[in-house]
Amino acid sequence: MDMQLELNVRRRGAMSGVLTLGSLDPAFEAAAHIAGEPVVLDLRGVEFVEPAGICGLAVLLEHLTGRSEEVSLSLSGWNVPAYLERMDFFKIFGGRVRTNADVASLEERERHDPGTLQELINFRTEDEIPGIIERISEILENRGYRLRERVAICSTLSEVCSNAAEHSASPCGAYAAVQAYHHIVSGSRRRGEEVLIAIADGGVGVRETLSRNTKYAEYTVTDNDALRYALKMGVSGTGEVGRGGGLTLVAQIATRSGGSLSLRSGSGRVTAYKNRKSSRIVPNFPGTFVRVSLPRTPAEKKEKDRE
């Protein structure tokens, strides 16, 4: 019999029906015990997928396809399959994963979605990154994003992708996706626009990377210790002067505009906000995951702030 993998999709509140990285926790746990048998991943309770969800799903499927002879996705409705199709999900996984959704009919539909800034993309090396940045920068420019916003989005993507390419040693490479929303999706719903950037890899994780530097031993006891320490200026696995500034500066860019940066790796989860950091022990994530929220401020308000 096929093994059924359940997800943890909330039924109530602001995050009801949303596929987040946390939704995938039970499936990641179950994936660790699979020994070849076919599995079905049940996404029928999902109504909405954010970049974090799609990147997490990609890493999960990489794990599952390596451990199971057949992986099937159970989808319902039209919105989620259509969104996955628009995000190039089936382009990447169509050949490796079975699904009950009629992908061919989705492909014929209009693909235009002004909110998609970067479809799900898989990359392995640093030299793929300038091309990714070139392309998203052009999209942002065409959609009227101001220079400051483009710089924030592009540098977040380039720094975090570089980290993944350089340190993760992830057998499946890393996945990234960027989506813009006409309302705030992180935390409590309020007015305003928000850009979400997610990058996930199936690599060694932050604690392992920092542990290579023996002088960090006391800061890498737990995954949360390592994640908090990784956000400090100048902390890097190599320990060379000048290294370890990218993530810190990216967190600064996000938090000073009222956004946030979350890191998950192993059993750790740390989120940086403007004046505080929160950490929690969470179910194991086999790799490193970064989610950045960048709220968009209307141009008029920015002008006022400057006065």
């Binding site: 920068s137 220079l147 483009r150 710089v151 592009c154 540098s155 380039s158 720094e159 570089s162 002067v241 000048g242 290294r243 500034g245 990218g246 500066l249």
Partner: peptide
């Protein structure tokens, strides 16, 4: 140049200055 990330700035100018 329109944008320069930290990694680029450090590698091109930081290491050069050093």
């Amino acid at each position: 140049v329109e944008m320069m990330d930290y990694s680029f700035a450090d590698e091109a100018l930081g290491i050069m200055a050093s």
